[in-house]
Simulated scan of single mutants.
Amino acid sequence: MKTNELKLLYEGKAKKIYEKSSDEVIIYFKDDVTAFNGIKKDSIIGKGKINKLITSFFFKMIEEKGIPTHFISDVDDNSFVAKKVKIIPLEVIIRNYTAGSFCKRYGIEKGIKIQKPIVEYSLKDDDLGDPMICKNVILSLKQVEEKILNRLEYYSLKINNILSSFLEEKNIILVDYKLEFGIYDNKVYLADEISPDTCRFWDKDTMESLDKDVYREDKGNLIDKYSEFLRRINI
C-alpha cells in the first residue's frame, strides 16, 4: 500500500487511518507496542501483521453472526479497507474473569471466573487517561443517546458469546477485552480492532497469557505468543 499517496486522518499508538474516499478509510496496523498509557513502548517487527490478520478474521466471523462491522476488505498484510465511521467516544469493556486493573481497583485476586459478564465503559480521551465512566454520566454528558448506549451493550454481550464459544473450542479463555463502535449512515458498527492488543487470552489449562500482558509484565516473547494464538485459532 502506497501510504504517501493517501491523506493521513489519524495516528494512534498501534494504527494509522488513511482516507481512501468520502465513505472509506484504510486502517494500517503498526508494529509499535505500548503499555501503561504509552509509558512503555517498543517496535516489534511482525506485530502489526498478526493483529491485522486476527482482527480481519474476527470481524468476518462477527459479521456472519449478524453484527455489522466497519470491515470491508483486506488490502495487504498490514491493512484493510473499512467504512469511514464516526467513532463513538467510549470504550466498552467486557470482563469474564478478574484480571488487570479490575483486580487492583477492588483488591481481589486474578483469575476468578465472573458469574455474569461485567460491562464497563471508559471515556476515550488520551489526555484524561481514558477514565472509567458509568451509564448515568454518559447520558448526562450526552456522549451518546440512550438507545445507542443500549445497542452498544447488546452488541458487546452478543460478541462476547460469539468469541467465548469459538475460543473455548480452542482451549482458550476470553478473559476480558475492549470494543469500540462507530456510526455510519445512522447505524452502529463495530470498529477499531479485536486482537491480543485489546483482549486478554489465556490458555485454559495453564492460564498462560497469549496477549499483550506478555509485554506488559515481561513474561516472554510477544511475537511468539501472538503467533501461538494464531496457530491455535487456525489462521
Score class of each variant (00 low, 15 high):
residue 1 M to W: 04
residue 4 N to A: 04
residue 4 N to Y: 10
residue 16 K to M: 11
residue 17 I to C: 12
residue 18 Y to C: 02
residue 18 Y to D: 01
residue 19 E to V: 01
residue 19 E to Y: 02
residue 21 S to D: 09
residue 22 S to D: 13
residue 25 V to C: 07
residue 27 I to Y: 07
residue 31 D to S: 07
residue 33 V to A: 14
residue 35 A to K: 02
residue 41 K to M: 13
residue 42 D to S: 15
residue 43 S to W: 00
residue 46 G to Q: 11
residue 47 K to R: 12
residue 48 G to M: 03
residue 48 G to T: 02
residue 54 I to Y: 09
residue 54 I to D: 09
residue 58 F to M: 02
residue 59 F to L: 14
residue 59 F to D: 06
residue 61 M to K: 15
residue 66 G to F: 13
residue 67 I to G: 05
residue 68 P to S: 14
residue 69 T to W: 07
residue 69 T to R: 14
residue 71 F to E: 10
residue 75 V to F: 06
residue 76 D to P: 06
residue 76 D to V: 07
residue 77 D to R: 09
residue 77 D to T: 09
residue 77 D to V: 07
residue 77 D to G: 11
residue 78 N to H: 11
residue 78 N to Q: 06
residue 79 S to E: 09
residue 82 A to H: 11
residue 84 K to C: 03
residue 86 K to M: 10
residue 92 V to Q: 08
residue 97 Y to H: 05
residue 100 G to T: 04
residue 101 S to H: 05
residue 101 S to K: 02
residue 101 S to P: 02
residue 102 F to K: 04
residue 105 R to P: 00
residue 107 G to A: 09
residue 110 K to L: 01
residue 114 I to S: 07
residue 114 I to Q: 09
residue 116 K to L: 03
residue 116 K to R: 11
residue 121 Y to R: 04
residue 121 Y to T: 00
residue 122 S to T: 13
residue 123 L to M: 07
residue 126 D to L: 02
residue 126 D to R: 04
residue 133 I to V: 15
residue 133 I to R: 11
residue 134 C to Q: 12
residue 139 L to Q: 11
residue 139 L to E: 13
residue 140 S to A: 12
residue 140 S to M: 14
residue 142 K to D: 15
residue 146 E to G: 01
residue 146 E to V: 01
residue 147 K to A: 01
residue 152 L to W: 03
residue 153 E to L: 00
residue 160 N to A: 12
residue 161 N to V: 02
residue 161 N to P: 00
residue 162 I to E: 09
residue 170 K to E: 08
residue 177 Y to N: 00
residue 178 K to Y: 05
residue 179 L to V: 00
residue 182 G to A: 08
residue 184 Y to Q: 04
residue 186 N to M: 01
residue 186 N to I: 01
residue 188 V to L: 07
residue 188 V to A: 12
residue 192 D to V: 03
residue 194 I to F: 15
residue 195 S to Y: 00
residue 195 S to W: 06
residue 196 P to M: 13
residue 199 C to D: 14
residue 199 C to I: 03
residue 200 R to L: 09
residue 207 M to V: 03
residue 208 E to P: 12
residue 211 D to G: 06
residue 213 D to V: 07
residue 220 G to F: 12
residue 225 K to C: 04
residue 225 K to T: 03
residue 232 R to D: 10
residue 232 R to Y: 06
